[in-house]
Each structure stands twice: as structure tokens, then as C-alpha cells.
Amino acid sequence: MKKLTAKTPSTYRTALTPYSVWSLLFVIVPLIFIAFYAFTDDNFTFTTDNITRFFTAKSNIVGEDGTSEEVRTYILIFMRSLKLAVISTAVCLVLGYPIAYIMARAKERTQKTMVTLIMIPMWMNFLIRTYAWMTLLQDTGIINGLLAKVGLGPVHVIGTETAVILGMVYDYFPYMVLPIYSILAKLDVRLLEAARDLGCGSVSVLRRVVFPLSMPGVISGITMVLIPSISTFYISQKLGNGKFFLIGDAIEGQYVANNLHFAAAIAFILMVILLSLMALVKYVSARYVYGGE
């Protein structure tokens, strides 16, 4: 017994020490640096200019009919990012839920194959995946070539918001399917049988039993798609022909221009908004999905 008591926390604390120190230095401190840079100028004296610039900077947009309109640049960029991210997330959910459900109800072997198939594209670099779509969607690309053979007119997709949404959906689709699938696969089949015995039709079973029980998977799927799609850069540069500047592009642009303090300010605001968004999702799901527990 003596040896057992000798083996308690101190050894384990030592094992944990490198990681604790590492996380403090390279996870916590860098986040403080974002706030530090966001609220200082080039001489590291305190200023709120960077933050105010985000909310007040204005620029002129010339519309297709030649009229110019003054807009708040970064507010516009942020709202656009939010819009495209929300649409992409919704499309992922609508397309992904059925496939997750089909996977969960398939035979065990088929399930495994399908999970691997869903995961394979994830391991291709997203730059390559995005670039592949760019070549597919070109006005002279393969899709338009095929359409022309069937006698359908060329569709102009590249450089539109649709193309950006398509790229986001393609890149983040597995992040929606896998969490929902993992919840649905563990679902107790007896619950469905019970619902049916009690007179539920199959649509009713889906709506009143399956869907509510899969909510945790849906919520983690939504966060896992929403966060990367709201903060992405590159996708919009390639598929939107640079016409739809997103918040990630704005941060990258400021970094390339070496405006580190303003880049930090945009990152800081994005972080604050995302954290509040996550808190809201947590609150709503706890209050309305899990019956206020």
C-alpha cells in the first residue's frame, strides 16, 4: 500500500507540467497579444482607433447602374461573411442530415465504408479542393462543356456568391455530417419502435423522436461549419474572383500590408462576436432543446 500512496498526484502533476506551461505560453498569452495589439498603436501606446476604424471606415461602392453609394466598409464585409456563412451552414444541414440518417440506418459494414468515404475529401488540402472547383466552374470549364453537349446554355457561376457558397459547402460538408451521424448511430432503436407502436407515422417519428434526440449532433455540426466558414479566406478570393471580400480576407489583407494592429483589431472583434454567438447557441440549446435543464 505504501507504493500506492507514493504514486498519487505529484508524479501525475509532473507529467502534466509541460503541457500546462505550453498552453499558457502558446495558447493563452497569444490571445492576450491580440487584445494588446488591437488596443495599441505602432508605438504600443493605448488607443481605440483600430476598433473605431472597424466600425466607421467608409468607402464608395459603384453599382452596376453607375450610381455610387457610401457604405461602412468593414460592417458590410462582416455582414456579408455572416450571410454567406449562415447560408452555407443551412445548406450543409439540409443536405447533410439525410445522408447522416441514411448512414446511421445502414448495415455496420456499409456504415464504416460511408464514414471513410465522407472523410476522404477532408484529407485533401482545402486549397486544392477549392482550386478544383474553380476549374470545374469556369465559363469554359468541364461543367459548362458537359452542359453544352446536352444542349444547355453555359451557366455563369464563377465570381458569384453562389460559387463562394458552393465552395464553403463542399469544404465543410463532412463537419456537419459526422457529428450528426455519430449521435444518430447511437440512437436507441427501441424508442422508434415504441413511437410507432403508439401510433406515430414515419414522418411523425422523424419529427418528434429522431430529430429532437439528434439535436446535440446538429448543434455541434452547425458550430463546426459556421466557425470556419465565417472566418475563411482564399475561398472567396478564388471562387468569387475577389469580388466578395470576407472578414478573413480583410484580416489577411491587413497582415500582408503589415498593418498588424488593425489586423489584430479585426481578429479581436471577430473573436468577441464568435464567443457571444457560441454562448447564445449554448444558452438557446440548453433552454429550448433540452427542456430548460
Partner: peptide
């Protein structure tokens, strides 16, 4: 988001 980790 990766971009935040990277920037920080």
C-alpha cells in the same frame, strides 16, 4: 478559427 490562432 485557424485564422485567430495563426494571427495570435
Amino acid at each position: 478559427p485557424d485564422i485567430i490562432t495563426g494571427i495570435s
